[in-house]
Design a protein around this nucleic acid. Sequence first.
DNA 1: GTCTATAGGTGGATAGAC
DNA 2: GTCTATCCACCTATAGAC
Lengths: 188, 188
Amino acid sequence: MSKQSTRDLILDSAQSLAQARGFNAFSYADIASELGVRKASIHYHFPSKQDLEAALLERYRAQFLSALDSIEQSAGGSVTRLKRYADLYAGTLSNGRICLAGMMASDIGALPEQLAPTLSAFFKEQIDWLTKVMTQGKNAGDLNFSGSAQSQANALLAALQGGLLVANAMGDETLFKRLGQTLISRLQ
Amino acid sequence: MSKQSTRDLILDSAQSLAQARGFNAFSYADIASELGVRKASIHYHFPSKQDLEAALLERYRAQFLSALDSIEQSAGGSVTRLKRYADLYAGTLSNGRICLAGMMASDIGALPEQLAPTLSAFFKEQIDWLTKVMTQGKNAGDLNFSGSAQSQANALLAALQGGLLVANAMGDETLFKRLGQTLISRLQ
DNA sequence: GTCTATAGGTGGATAGAC
DNA sequence: GTCTATCCACCTATAGAC
């Protein structure tokens, strides 16, 4: 059980709050009371909220890319990989949370412009990874779809992000699980 | 050119701001400066921000339902109706805005609980309408899909909502237009 | 209905002691 | 690194004159 640094604890708390409420609906005071420290301590690690937001996104992006690597190195064909990809999203849905990137996308109009390129890169990486899986799956005969692999990748990413949004708003987690099955079964 | 009441002007301004920034990232002061009135005047029409938010959602819901009626009464088969439905979403994307309901869904964790049932009803109405169009289209031979009409309706709603989010975050309006084509063409 | 003025609270952020 | 103390800007909301 390695000790987590205060910095990491702050990021964990902030991420949970951001995924549940949005980037403009949590404060340093929220994090401080959750961790039992003072606001000034958080400002020591992240001088401005923009610094915190940027660190949140970077960490989430790195974790997500790492998860994609893990999926690629595990056994299973394209269908299994897509299922495991959808499960990454389903995992965020518990406790009324959605994907951090999806939340940031919805808040993009109220966030510092400097964050937009990284968020855009995040989505591009997701689409590129999905496009690769789609292409491999089609070539191997595991997947069957018409149109380009990239347009299928776009559609899957959009459906998963929107599915989190709608399922969370309707308080119906099973809606998202059924959606994942629908999306993947029609690619077979 | 009928005069718009101050109340309607307030709702217009608030809706535009909410769709662009989110419900927790615009203020009475923003609306006041946009309309050239004082904050207190807005409080006269909408005593609390919760009142304003509720009115925004109700009006959006009524307008959307009216648009669905209009689509139903116009000529054209199921494919045309789905295309016109997707166009309702595409229309919001200009000027960095997304669907008001999608934005409210992302902010649901930071909004008064009283709004959740109405938002949930909004999404249910969308799904029911799409399910009806899907069913009619399949029976008429216009549409072709496996699985239930309702799961296809869920998937289409989710993909459109998520598509707005991703396209807006990536600053790529054409991504959404291509998505709409992909989603509908694979139902034929 | 709209205004001026203001209350009461919370936001992010900084200075400086320990 | 964490704390106390504080600043100032902004938020929602209300009272009361016009």
